[in-house]
């Protein structure tokens, strides 16, 4: 999570995907985008978390940006489902989000990055792939 970015501007070429898209099928076109912006119209509207999850699962490797009503206290969640950046015009408290990102060392779910879940750590011989929980 070291390279989680807080963006003040958005690349014009970034591809926007509305959060009404369930992304059940993801085209090669989307997968080859350099950066994709997913929207949180309100921070309470959590659809983009699942969208991010699906994009990463489909093999999307580019920058995945959370935009809209994004909040510092939510940074960990963005990162753990596969976002690599936050875009916010507001005064985004980077210190808070940094705390949030690093606060928990262990998780009950494995995540987009290749870290191991608690279940894996409870049994050091388990392969990472089988670590269980599966936030990603």
């Amino acid at each position: 999570m070291d390279n989680f970015l807080i963006l003040k501007t958005l690349d014009k070429a970034a591809r926007r995907i509305e959060n009404t898209e369930a992304l059940e099928n993801i085209s090669g076109d989307i997968l080859s985008s350099k950066s994709i912006v997913l929207n949180f119209p309100s921070f309470m509207d959590g659809r983009a978390y699942s969208q991010a999850r699906r994009l990463r699962r489909a093999g999307y490797k580019g920058t995945l940006i959370a935009a809209g009503d994004v909040r510092a206290d939510q940074a960990r969640q963005y990162a753990r489902v596969g976002f690599s950046a936050i875009f916010s015009k507001n005064n985004f408290d980077g210190a808070i989000s940094q705390n949030d990102l690093t606060r928990f060392t262990d998780h009950y779910q494995s995540s987009a990055s290749d870290e191991q879940s608690i279940y894996h750590k409870r049994f050091p011989n388990t392969a990472a792939k089988e670590s269980g929980g599966g936030a990603f």
Partner: peptide, 13 residues
Amino acid sequence: RQWSTFHPEFTYL
């Protein structure tokens, strides 16, 4: 309980 605790994807259902 463990799986759902702070599940990043399912906190704003």
